[in-house]
Computed example of a mutant assay.
Amino acid sequence: MIRTHQSITDTDELKPDLTPLLDIIFIVMVFLLLTASVKIQSLDVELPQTETQALQETESDPITVNITAESPYWALQGNEIEDWDAFKTELLKEVKANPDKPVVIGADKAGTVENMLKLLAFLQQNDIKATQLLMEEDKS
């Protein structure tokens, strides 16, 4: 009888304890769920916090891009450009000629959001950093 009891105890000791393994599996699952990459379709735009900070960051001669409300919608360095394709070509030439100059965007408040998004998408595609978006302070 003692022998039988002894053999039952030996077989219980030979079974592996799976509790730590399950803990590790759940920790890995949680880690993978939290670190899974989710593609967020958005544009990163950093706007100046205050007017004084924006003035300090502006260099004396930036590359200026203007979006107007009426045709022609695009202007580069104060020169109006008739169509989007010509504007893209000129902007790329200007940035390649002056890679150290910041790009400053000024948009007319009556202009379309579509043109602003088109410009920001183009800047992001070509890895052009826009340092500022010019805005007026709300005086109300």
Rank of each mutant, 00 (worst) to 15 (best):
P102E: 14
S71F: 12
I24T: 14
I105N: 01
G111V: 04
V38I: 05
N126W: 02
P72A: 00
D85H: 08
I105T: 03
K118Q: 07
T64L: 12
L134F: 07
F31Q: 10
G111S: 15
L91R: 01
T9Q: 12
D108L: 07
A36K: 08
K88L: 02
A107L: 12
T58Q: 10
Q6D: 11
Q125D: 10
K39Q: 14
L47V: 15
T50D: 05
E90L: 10
S42C: 09
E94K: 09
T35D: 03
F31T: 09
E90H: 08
T11P: 01
F26I: 07
E82Y: 06
Q41D: 10
L47F: 13
D17Q: 06
K39T: 06
P48Y: 04
D138C: 08
K118D: 03
K88I: 00
E46D: 13
G106L: 15
T50P: 02
K88Q: 06
L91Y: 01
R3W: 13
P72M: 00
F122S: 02
A130C: 05
L92K: 08
L119S: 00
K93V: 05
L21I: 10
T50L: 04
P20V: 02
D23I: 07
L22R: 06
D17G: 04
A97S: 14
Q125C: 04
F26L: 13
T52D: 15
L117D: 05
K139H: 12
A121S: 11
T9C: 15
G106V: 12
V30C: 15
E70P: 02
S60K: 14
Q77K: 07
L76E: 00
E114G: 14
N66W: 01
S140I: 09
V45M: 07
I40P: 00
V45Y: 04
L47M: 14
A86G: 09
T9P: 06
Q77P: 03
E13R: 07
T4W: 09
D44Y: 12
A121Q: 07
T19E: 08
Q77D: 08
M135E: 04
L117T: 08
L21A: 10
I40E: 02
E94T: 09
D17W: 03
M135G: 05
D10W: 08
L119V: 01
T89F: 11
T68A: 14
L123W: 00
E136Q: 13
S140Y: 10
A107F: 05
A54R: 05
I2E: 11
P16E: 02
T64H: 07
D127C: 05
Y73H: 04
